[in-house]
Simulated scan of single mutants.
Amino acid sequence: MQTVLQEIQVDEPLYQLFPGMTKQEIVNRALLIRKEAMEKESPHRCVEGLFFLKETLYKNSFNSEAFPKDKLPTLRIFEVGSCFGVALRKLVLDGASRDNIFGVDVSDTFVRLGYQFFDDKASFGDRIRVLNVLADNFFDVVHSWAGPEPFDVVIANLVFHCLPDHNDVLAERAYKLLKPGGVLIGQTAAHANDMNEQFVFGISPRKAVLHSESSFNNLLKSHGFQTVKVNLNDHPMEEEDIQWMSRHFAFDKNEASGLSLMSFIARK
């Protein structure tokens, strides 16, 4: 796999996370992080495609609804599937309280590489920990760490499509984490065609899931969410993304029309 440095984009707001560093220095560090992550973990398009340099949460069309600037300093925020932790670090820069943010990821490699990427173990502390959202003791661990108070916002960015057999558990646990009126926000792989049921593709253990607006509404409302809004146009999938899906999941490229990373927000 070849990468042309000049073609790699770093979103302008993310430069704030690397004070004093040039684009080339940031990209070089990102490529080292990507290399180790790809060697030690199963393939993830968001890692291989350097999505963490094009952080998607603040581009989500519902971002300002989930994180109003006047309330951001007091919001309790929990992220499932933090990966390298770009979103939470950016939220702190935007005004969120470091003491009110908590993130988990199943991969100790991703968590460790996140601290290495941003070189902020001393200042960022243990805001992101290794924990499987599907674990039996998930809530016990969260409550002993973050306290029993519910959260204002739960982030599940690029997570639902990675857990095709566990979407119900993820939706249920996100709902339970939230206070009344709290919101779930993120993106997931989706298809513009209207489907009442999710579409699982790939061969076990490498499977993923596509939702439509209808199937995702059905999923979240079946677990108690009162309102669900989606936007299929925030992040259309590019040809390179579709080729990656075909390569790793035996995805039929003939079914690729209308694919996107669908932004969503759901209120408890």
Score class of each variant (00 low, 15 high):
residue 2 Q to I: 01
residue 8 I to G: 04
residue 8 I to D: 08
residue 10 V to D: 02
residue 12 E to D: 14
residue 14 L to N: 01
residue 20 G to E: 09
residue 23 K to H: 12
residue 25 E to R: 15
residue 30 A to G: 09
residue 30 A to L: 03
residue 32 L to N: 15
residue 33 I to A: 02
residue 38 M to Y: 03
residue 41 E to S: 07
residue 41 E to Q: 10
residue 42 S to E: 09
residue 43 P to G: 01
residue 46 C to P: 00
residue 52 F to T: 11
residue 56 T to R: 15
residue 58 Y to R: 14
residue 60 N to C: 01
residue 61 S to R: 09
residue 64 S to Q: 15
residue 65 E to W: 10
residue 67 F to M: 13
residue 77 I to K: 10
residue 79 E to K: 07
residue 85 G to F: 13
residue 92 V to I: 14
residue 94 D to N: 12
residue 95 G to Y: 03
residue 95 G to T: 00
residue 95 G to Q: 05
residue 96 A to P: 15
residue 99 D to F: 10
residue 100 N to I: 01
residue 101 I to M: 11
residue 109 T to M: 04
residue 110 F to H: 08
residue 115 Y to C: 06
residue 118 F to M: 11
residue 119 D to A: 13
residue 120 D to K: 03
residue 121 K to A: 12
residue 124 F to M: 06
residue 125 G to N: 11
residue 126 D to L: 01
residue 127 R to Y: 04
residue 128 I to Q: 01
residue 130 V to T: 09
residue 136 D to V: 08
residue 137 N to A: 05
residue 138 F to L: 09
residue 138 F to N: 10
residue 143 H to R: 14
residue 148 P to F: 04
residue 150 P to V: 04
residue 150 P to H: 00
residue 155 I to W: 05
residue 156 A to I: 00
residue 158 L to Q: 07
residue 160 F to N: 03
residue 160 F to C: 01
residue 163 L to A: 10
residue 165 D to W: 08
residue 165 D to K: 14
residue 169 V to P: 04
residue 170 L to A: 03
residue 170 L to C: 03
residue 173 R to L: 00
residue 174 A to W: 02
residue 177 L to S: 11
residue 178 L to M: 02
residue 181 G to V: 02
residue 185 I to S: 05
residue 185 I to A: 13
residue 189 A to G: 13
residue 196 N to L: 14
residue 197 E to C: 06
residue 200 V to R: 12
residue 200 V to W: 05
residue 202 G to S: 04
residue 205 P to F: 06
residue 205 P to T: 10
residue 208 A to T: 03
residue 212 S to M: 04
residue 214 S to E: 07
residue 215 S to M: 03
residue 215 S to E: 00
residue 215 S to T: 04
residue 220 L to D: 00
residue 221 K to E: 08
residue 223 H to G: 09
residue 226 Q to V: 02
residue 237 M to C: 15
residue 239 E to F: 07
residue 240 E to D: 14
residue 242 I to R: 06
residue 248 H to Y: 15
residue 251 F to I: 06
residue 251 F to A: 07
residue 252 D to S: 05
residue 257 S to E: 11
residue 258 G to W: 08
residue 261 L to R: 03
residue 264 F to A: 10
residue 268 K to D: 12
